Simulated assay, not measured.
Amino acid sequence: MQLVVGRIGRAHGIKGEVTVEVRTDEPELRLGPGAVLATDPAATGPLTIAAGRVHSGRLMLRFEGVSDRTGAEALRNTLLIADVDPEELPEGEDEYYDHQLMDLDVVLADGTEVGRITEISHLASQDLFIVEREDGTEVMIPFVEEIVTEIDLEKQRAVIDPPPGLIDDQAEIASSREADDSREADEDSREDGDA
């Protein structure tokens, strides 16, 4: 099975080094020196990591055969893809690979169905489940402990406890109703004051 583990960013310096947006929880395993990675677009690779280091909080990599800034710039926006055994599990207890989470049913604690995970979006601050509902609409669920309370791979489901307004528009309706009520109360008090 192939997993995207990074995306090549800008060239850094003049010796072929590039910045890498890490998309794996195990960069030391997947993006270490000697690792051979497939690429998207495929014509760019495979790429073998010659060296790596962290600079100002960013991962920098140098690939075999890329020794100058021009070669490094040509790799920009290339996705780095690692071959992973589908039976392999992450080391951490509450960690999952994307392929384990895809197509899980998303339900509330009481069993109410919300939808199915169709995509996982990796943002800088957190990961998001893109959940397709039965009616074809999508809802984004932050993959944080406070909201996603349980992942049950055996039952193929993710249990969520969403705050008001995350998967429905109750919060919006309540706030607009309150605004209407307070406007009416203001108008009533002005009318009483005018009398």
Rank of each mutant, 00 (worst) to 15 (best):
Y97Q: 06
E26I: 04
Y96K: 08
L59S: 04
D192G: 10
L79T: 01
A179F: 05
S56I: 07
T48W: 04
A42T: 11
P164I: 00
G45C: 04
S175Q: 13
L89Q: 13
E134D: 15
I8D: 00
A109S: 09
R157D: 02
A51E: 13
S56A: 15
E113A: 13
I130Y: 10
P90F: 09
A11D: 07
G52Y: 01
R157L: 13
E28Q: 14
R190A: 06
V36G: 06
V66M: 05
S125Q: 14
G165T: 04
E88Y: 11
E145G: 06
I130K: 15
I167N: 01
M60R: 15
D186L: 13
A43Y: 10
G57V: 08
V106Y: 02
R10Y: 09
A50P: 01
R53N: 12
I130F: 07
E154G: 15
G65K: 12
E184N: 09
T78A: 13
G52P: 01
R10Q: 14
H99T: 05
R116S: 07
I14M: 11
D194N: 14
E93L: 14
V159S: 03
R23H: 11
P162E: 01
R157V: 01
L89A: 12
L3H: 09
L31G: 02
P86F: 06
T70C: 00
L101D: 02
D85I: 03
L61R: 08
A158I: 01
D105S: 15
S125G: 04
M102V: 00
K15L: 11
P163G: 04
E187G: 06
S182H: 06
